[in-house]
Nucleic acid binder design. Structure first.
Lengths: 215, 215
DNA sequence: TAAAATGTACGAACTAGTGAGTATGTCAAG
DNA sequence: CTTGACATACTCACTAGTTCGTACATTTTA
């Protein structure tokens, strides 16, 4: 917001931190935790390395802050969905579509999660903020499945977490493994037509599954 | 094999290289390319750091060798399947089961692929050996789908690569995202019962999808 | 003027990579 | 079958450069 004075300095701690986090997200998501360089982050920032340590204490501290910030984003996204008014199948399709598009438009997040898995989720474990994600998706899915069962449209009994995994795996994989996949199969996953086909496929697969024989 | 002499040295280039690759696979798959330490690899080896550079030229060279070795393994696995005798649905289920178990029993491979994706598959692109993987799975799937369509058991038209992705995504994700997933959802994915349920689920989902309305 | 925020310059430790020489195995000639 | 020459395999000690982190000085804000 506040433009900087001609010569002098203007203190703006919030913007400074936000600036650092923005740059650090980019750096860590492209190079990983070990590969990311604090100096590189500092350079791309409008502030200095000193500030990174002033606010985040260490490289790991910064990484953790980046991770928490990334997770905070989806949490709000998940909560915003209003699916209880829709018929079960349609509700599920909207949810899947949302997940699909979330991963597609947030490759940084996907990459950070991949990186965190390489580190055995060690940082996530230390962060209450992330660990206690109240995973509203599961409740959402559970509600949809119950309604679907009651209305007789979903004949197969299924665990909400399993269903979430089925959906999430596909959406996530498309983004996380984009490079190796398209290298091996020479297929551009970011093409609009391909995206639409895939989005339809995962939705159809999940719905077909739930409409199969009872588990 | 050949036991080393009490004091002296015993030249065994093949074993030396294999030894280095084994250790390096472990190191890179746990710490990533940037996070992996050449010195750490050297220490865990029965040989020295100098030998790593003697045989592999650079850290990246070693990483690439590790990657190629990992891919060489699956290539043989894929080819070994004899599915043309089985009825389409059963053939598909066997294929899925194989993929599932491959990822489950080769977390190192899964991690290396994740890491390679973080690097935009840059090393894979440079390696003809990997790039030219003759992805026999796709032909296998294509054949199964055709037979299934001919016999009327698969009513939905589907692209073999898409189907492969649907299968692979789930199997891969279970392993690659094991840590973050189980941290958030407090669910142990390596439990035998869970594994069996998941294996059945992905198979049922794919089969149900293919038996759905024509695409 | 005290406290918070920031800039600059530097250092200690780590890390990839190398220079230079030694040991081992092989094979041909005596 | 033994000697010597040569290529491959290997050891040890070292370095140049990087990278996280900090000491110290300075400015801004309340």
């Amino acid at each position: 917001m506040a433009a900087r004075r001609e010569n002098g300095r203007k203190n703006d701690p919030q913007r400074t931190q936000e600036d650092i986090l923005e740059v650090a997200t980019e750096e860590f998501s492209t190079h990983g935790l070990a590969g990311g360089r604090v100096d590189a982050i500092a350079e791309k920032t409008r502030t200095s390395k000193r500030m990174i340590y002033y606010y985040f204490g260490s490289k790991e501290g910064l990484y953790l802050a980046v991770l928490e910030r990334a997770y905070r984003k989806i949490r709000t996204l998940e909560a915003d969905l209003q699916l209880s008014n829709l018929p079960p199948e349609q509700a599920l399709r909207v949810l899947i579509s949302t997940t699909f598009e979330h991963d597609e438009t947030n490759p940084d997040f996907v990459r950070l999660v991949s990186i965190e898995n390489i580190h055995h989720a060690a940082h996530m474990l230390r962060s209450e903020a992330i660990r206690d994600l109240n995973v509203s998706v599961i409740e959402t899915i559970a509600a949809i499945l119950e309604r679907g069962a009651a209305e007789g449209v979903f004949t197969r009994k299924a665990d909400p977490i399993d269903i979430h995994m089925l959906i999430s795996a596909f959406c996530f994989f498309r983004v996380s493994n984009r490079y190796t996949f398209s290298t091996i199969f020479r297929r551009d996953l970011s093409e609009a037509a391909t995206m639409e086909r895939h989005k339809g496929m995962i939705a159809d697969a999940v719905v077909s599954y739930l409409q199969g024989k009872a588990g």
